[in-house]
Design a protein around this nucleic acid. Structure first.
Lengths: 164, 164
DNA sequence: TTTGTTGCAAAACGTTTGCAGCCTC
DNA sequence: GAGGCTGCAAACGTTTTGCAACAAA
């Protein structure tokens, strides 16, 4: 269950690992191993942080040009094999992010819309220890909504627990 | 911090509580208290489970007709004051859900796309105990991706930890 | 009375689709 | 060689926008 955590010293291997994993997935699902798909996977795992379709399109352009349709198609594949995660923050366009060896969570300020990341190993333990009716968790993501330090200070905004 | 948990016996009060909370929010943000907004809030808190714009539009029609534009506008407001949560499961249309006294999480099968809910009080404890750099968490939601019991059994599908 | 909010319809935007040609298998 | 995959452009559906009328403050 759950993606492995790779030690920093082995970080260079990650691209190779995900590539192999993707290959196995494609074989199992009888899908073709096209150079476009590998180029996209490689680009995603070379990029730290969130990206959207346009950003990925621009990033790839120089290296290995693919159409938007192929990007959408491949991102769907990578999502289905749990190598990327899809986020919909606020009203921005859909964001994606590599997810192998990259589990972390997001704090989203409902006032200024800022997004901050945080990690927590304890959540992992909880998920791994819960039975969940036979569901095999491979990947997960938590979104916490509220007020960032700055907005919390700026406003004496009400919260559902006001006066408690 | 965090939405209160209301005992079952007090469940009838919830609509009243969220209405008051919404009123305070509108006053604080100098927005008008229109009947449309309250009618929408009431309808949402009368509904158990997920809904999308069209479903809400149809649900409201009989009771208090509002335009789609107003639904979008009001859902945005309710999201900003943490009374609803927005989900983007797979390729379905955007789903919403009341979030006051309704914190739970989602198991999403990447194979059959089924969605199952689960609750966990331990996650709440972790979030409440972490400092998070001054971020005030009001609401949160966890999405776990993987294989549901049925799909896990059906396939000897590879996972990132295959052979481990 | 002022100005934010609503409803309507049109516009905009991200994503999906159909099809011809290409390239894995 | 067959059929899946790609690129392109058109189509689609959801969300946003502009504007006039309305109503909360």
């Amino acid at each position: 269950m759950l993606h492995k955590t790779i030690e920093p010293s082995k970080k260079d291997d990650i691209k190779e690992i995900v590539k192999q994993y993707f290959t196995e997935y494609l074989i199992q699902h009888e899908q073709r191993k096209t150079p476009e798909r590998y180029a996209i996977l490689d680009k995603i795992y070379s990029w730290k942080g969130h990206f959207d379709i346009d950003m990925l399109y621009d990033l790839m352009k120089d290296d290995y040009r693919v159409s938007r349709a192929t990007l959408y198609n491949t991102l769907e594949l990578l999502k289905d094999c749990n190598l990327i995660i899809k986020h919909q923050f606020g009203s921005e366009s859909t964001q994606y992010e590599k997810s192998y060896n990259n589990i972390h969570h997001h704090l989203i300020c409902t006032k200024c819309k800022s997004i901050k990341e945080f990690g927590d190993e304890n959540i992992k333990k909880i998920i791994q220890s819960k039975p969940l009716g036979g569901f095999k968790v491979i990947n997960y993501s938590l979104y916490a909504y509220g007020l960032c330090a700055k907005c919390a200070k700026a406003s004496n905004s009400i919260t559902p627990n006001k006066g408690k």
